[in-house]
Simulated scan of single mutants.
Amino acid sequence: MSSLRESFERVSLPAITRLSELPRVIPFLVVIALVVAGVLLPPPGWLLLGVVALLLAWILALAWPRLSRVEKLMRIAVVALMVALLLTQAFPRG
């Protein structure tokens, strides 16, 4: 019987394989483009920030067992920053 973690990794394997075949700069540029578009586009452009937050959380969950405590904290901070940016774009003041 496989664990939930093994199932998660098995389901993620095709997408991770495709990502690893790309030049390293391509996923980075896609994430940057989604963040910039999510900030600059009018509502519902913030949905793009949600895509980025989910993508980063997914990668964090896959890498979690192999990360040191400091690496975990840094990556949690990045995901939290994306969620904060998403919330400020989705629910602006005034």
Rank of each mutant, 00 (worst) to 15 (best):
T88A: 02
V78C: 09
L55S: 14
A53Q: 06
A63Q: 15
A61M: 15
G50L: 11
W64H: 13
P23E: 07
R24Y: 06
A15G: 05
E6S: 08
L55V: 05
R66W: 15
R5T: 09
L81S: 13
G45L: 14
F91E: 10
V31F: 01
V51E: 06
A37W: 03
V25R: 07
I16S: 10
R69I: 14
V39A: 03
L86W: 07
R69Q: 14
V11S: 08
R75I: 00
S7V: 10
R5H: 08
L48K: 07
P42Q: 05
S3R: 03
L73Q: 09
L40A: 08
P23R: 07
A15Y: 09
W46G: 01
V70G: 04
G45E: 13
A57D: 10
V83Y: 11
S7G: 06
I26D: 01
S2L: 14
V51W: 09
L56Q: 15
S2Q: 13
L4P: 04
P92H: 08
E21R: 15
L73Y: 07
V30K: 01
E21M: 14
W64L: 15
V39R: 04
V35H: 05
E9T: 04
I16G: 03
V35M: 06
A57H: 10
L62M: 11
F91Q: 02
T88Q: 13
V39S: 02
L48I: 05
P43T: 08
E71F: 02
V39K: 02
R69Y: 14
P27C: 02
R93G: 07
G38D: 01
P44M: 07
K72P: 00
A37F: 10
V30W: 03
R93W: 15
A84H: 05
A33I: 00
A53Y: 09
T17F: 14
V36L: 11
R75F: 13
R24E: 10
L60P: 02
F8V: 00
V70K: 14
S12D: 06
L47V: 14
P42T: 04
V78S: 12
A61D: 04
S68T: 15
V51M: 10
A63M: 09
V70P: 00
M82S: 04
M1N: 06
P43V: 05
L47K: 09
L86Q: 00
E6N: 07
I32T: 04
A77L: 11
A53S: 08
P65L: 05
Q89P: 00
A80H: 12
G45Q: 09
G50V: 06
A80V: 12
L54M: 11
R66L: 05
R75H: 12
Q89M: 10
P43R: 15
L86A: 02
L29Q: 03
I59T: 06
L73I: 01
A57R: 13
S12W: 06
P44N: 12
L40P: 00
V31D: 01
